[in-house]
């Protein structure tokens, strides 16, 4: 009977509909417990009063944000004055993370392109080689970076022995050292998404461009890059975001002068000297910043999709 068959069909879909909510439970609980709950805790803590020697007093306070942004308090009698210390650290973090991202892109793109254009059977070997350093703890890698970059370290020795420089370049405890450290920490996050995009790229398009009188540079700019742009954007986000909050590289390679926001936050929760609400507030500012950057990227992407 036709009616029976039809109702049977709809009953099946209903069953799935009921089950869907339950089947999604693990995913939802992971998201809730591991992702949203900690952020929510940070948000709450940033509005509490600090307890000396760490911890918080459960009493509402705007002191943390006040300390971050203003020198003379927002709630005093005099007009507020902006506190530049933390904003400078913040700005330096953005600059350092941005420089590390650009460095990763400049090195990562050709690397990814090279790997993606190798014969199919050797590509996994190259990807494997790229990820090998990541089997070692980040702290160890950053410390070895420190030895590598020292005035009397292997890098300077090499440059001096080749006669390129006559005396050691001072790299350690500079911005450059931090940028190199961040670059080294997150390079695979640039290489892998770009590799994935280039591997899917239809190389006949490059041939078509060459056939239509475009040289290599024009082909790269007008045909290859637009096609692999999603991979490039993903790579940039994946390097920029963790670089922005990094604290190992700035701590170990940058010295006291090149403090970044990650180190600032870390300090607030370490030992007895910390200020938990202030650390939480700084984290919230960082989070807001990252969200704004991601939103801008997403809007750009969708605009590029609609345009033309």
């Amino acid at each position: 009977m036709a009616g029976g068959a039809a109702s049977g069909g709809s009953a099946t879909t209903d069953t799935y509909k009921d089950a869907r909510g339950w089947l999604l439970m693990p995913a939802w609980s992971v998201l809730l417990v591991l992702s949203l709950a900690p952020v929510f805790m940070m948000l709450v803590y940033s509005f509490l009063t600090k307890e000396f020697r760490g911890g918080v007093i459960w009493e509402f306070s705007l002191a943390a944000y006040d300390q971050f942004f203003f020198d003379r308090g927002l709630f005093g009698d005099d007009p507020p004055v902006i506190e530049w210390t933390y904003l400078t650290i913040f700005w330096r973090s953005i600059w350092q993370a941005g420089a590390a991202t650009i460095l990763s892109l400049l090195i990562g793109f050709p690397t990814a392109y090279y790997i993606a254009t190798r014969p199919e059977n050797v590509r996994p070997v190259w990807l494997f080689l790229i990820t090998i350093p990541y089997w070692v703890n980040l702290l160890i890698r950053t410390v070895s970076m420190k030895f590598l970059l020292r005035d009397q370290g292997p890098l300077n020795d090499l440059l001096m022995s080749t006669g390129l420089i006559s005396e050691p370049i001072h790299i350690i405890n500079t911005n450059l050292a931090v940028q190199l450290g961040l670059f080294y920490s997150y390079l695979p996050f640039m290489v892998l998404p770009i590799y994935a995009a280039v591997e899917r790229y239809n190389f006949a398009l490059s041939e078509a461009a060459a056939d239509l009188y475009a040289n290599k540079w024009v082909t790269l700019r007008r045909v290859l890059l637009p096609a692999v742009k999603p991979g490039v954007v993903a790579g940039c986000i994946l390097v920029f975001v963790p670089s922005l909050g990094a604290f190992l590289a700035p701590d170990l390679l940058g010295g006291a002068k090149n403090f970044m926001i990650g180190s600032l936050i870390e300090e607030q929760f370490k030992g007895n000297a910390g200020n938990w609400p202030f650390g939480a507030a700084a984290s919230m500012v960082l989070l807001t910043m990252v969200l704004i950057i991601l939103l801008i990227c997403a809007r750009q992407q969708s605009k590029a999709g609609k345009e033309v």
């Binding site: 041939e207 078509a208 461009a209 239509l212 009188y213 040289n215 045909v223 096609a227």
Partner: peptide
């Protein structure tokens, strides 16, 4: 190729998607 005054119609067209 970009210096040869010949043009190609490719098998799968290879039109620039963007």
């Amino acid at each position: 190729p970009h210096q040869r005054p010949v043009n190609t119609v490719f098998q799968n067209y290879a039109l620039f998607p963007q």
